[in-house]
């Protein structure tokens, strides 16, 4: 159907052919050519000066010099001149070469013929024949046992590299659902590791907290990535919580997992006036007074709330572990 289409083409205008070659000044006037040559030379010399600037800056310039420049501000002279030296050195080699090519190398346009990529009909037929003969000689079509077993073998062998990757990591088991928070774990400041009493927090105050470490244990980033908690104190009357969630707070102090339930960033952007928590990564917004209900953005779940209690010494502790996995969703998560 395509070949029919072309016959519909209207009579085209005539192609006037490649326009006549226009000579450059440097082609006609030896003086202009000489001038162009000098220009190229100057460009190469500027490049050489750039290299010298580079060497000088590298070897002799102190790191401690700062110079003030418009736009750049107060800049480190060594870094600046090293870079400028290198830039000049390279840039003007290029400028010189291009200027040389443009003014002094032949600029006659050349026409080369294209050849259709498709091979000659004879070659194509030969090729098809060769493939057919080869296939016939190998007998793949006839020997079905070979064909099938080869398929099985090849398919199975693909498992080898996959299996070899198995030891890249352990199985997750129920890791995603566990944090270091246990009933009675003290909340301590991050950084500082100081336990917190309710009286330490004024109304409107926040604290970034982590679980207290058992003696002799080091804090790993993997743990922080699940344990980080944000402590917020508001007026108790402002809570709109059900009885259970309200019992998880203490005198207006409420604790949420700081790991965003969307993609795991630290949700620590607390607006005191609106009582909203905002995640700076994707702008999910949570309402603190309503148990971190999502009020804007892509997150689909509230932040898990940590139940609070006081220990014998009056410090804030977790009443119980988190009742749901913290952080982003995963297939095995039972969110219903």
């Amino acid at each position: 159907m395509t070949s029919d289409n072309q016959s519909n083409e209207i009579a085209p205008l005539t192609d006037p052919g490649i326009p006549a070659h226009l000579h450059r000044k440097s082609d006609l006037d030896p003086k202009a050519a000489k001038k162009a040559e000098r220009q190229v030379g100057i460009l190469f010399i500027i490049s050489a000066l750039g290299t010298i600037l580079f060497i000088y800056s590298y070897t002799f310039m102190s790191e401690k010099i700062f110079i003030f420049l418009p736009v750049l501000g107060n800049s480190n002279a060594k870094q600046l001149f090293l870079g400028l030296g290198m830039a000049i050195s390279l840039f003007f080699i290029g400028m010189g070469a291009v200027h040389w090519a443009k003014t002094l190398m032949p600029d006659n346009e050349v026409v080369a013929q294209r050849h259709e990529l498709r091979s000659e009909e004879v070659d194509r037929e030969d090729f098809v024949k060769t493939v057919k003969e080869g296939a016939a000689a190998a007998g793949l079509g006839r020997r079905s046992i070979i064909k099938r077993t080869l398929g099985v073998a090849l398919g199975l062998s693909g498992l080898t590299p996959l299996l070899l990757l198995r030891d890249l990591g352990p199985l997750p088991k129920d890791d995603f659902s566990k944090t270091s928070w246990e009933a009675g774990t003290r909340l301590v400041t991050d950084p500082g590791d100081r336990p917190i009493k309710p009286s330490d927090l004024e109304i409107g105050a926040v604290a970034q907290v982590l679980p207290e470490l058992p003696a002799g244990k080091e804090r790993k980033l993997e743990d922080i990535g699940k344990d980080a908690v944000l402590l917020i104190r508001i007026r108790p009357a402002e809570f709109q919580l059900d009885a259970e969630r309200l019992s998880w707070t203490h005198e207006g102090i409420i604790a949420f997992s700081k790991i965003c339930s969307h993609m795991g960033c630290a949700v620590a952007l607390y607006e005191q006036t609106t009582k909203h928590l905002l995640c700076p990564c994707h702008q999910s917004t949570y309402d603190v007074t309503r148990a971190a209900k999502v009020i804007f953005g892509p997150s689909a779940r509230p932040l898990p709330q940590l139940a609070l209690a006081l220990d014998a010494e009056g410090y804030l502790v977790a009443k119980q572990p988190f009742t749901e996995p913290v952080g982003p969703s995963f297939w095995e998560r039972d969110s219903s």
Binding site: M86, A87, L90, F91, I93, G94, M95, G96, A97, V98
Partner: peptide, 9 residues
């Protein structure tokens, strides 16, 4: 070739 140096520079 010149353009390479220009891009690098």
């Amino acid at each position: 070739g010149g353009f390479f140096f220009i891009v690098f520079g």
